[in-house]
Amino acid sequence: MRAQVNGTSRDLAEGTSVAAVVTLVGAPAKGVAVALDGAVVPRALWEKTIVPDGGVVEVLTAVQGG
């Protein structure tokens, strides 16, 4: 199945969790948040939240700015 991960279309295995996507993009251990289809997925739900076909995942962290 395919999903948009940080703006890029990716092939993901069926049943891929949000936690797996976070690892896939190389996110640091701390200071990261995830939105799935425009809603925040709390860290506690990363393992059990499955990315649906056509899902849009954004993995964000803090950078210098402002």
Binding site: N6, G7, A33, V63, Q64
Partner: peptide
């Protein structure tokens, strides 16, 4: 001090936190 939120793979890890 302010920080911005950006995609993990776009900005890279800055270590600012």
């Amino acid at each position: 001090t302010t920080v911005a939120m950006r995609r993990v793979d776009a900005a890279g890890q800055t270590g600012v936190l």
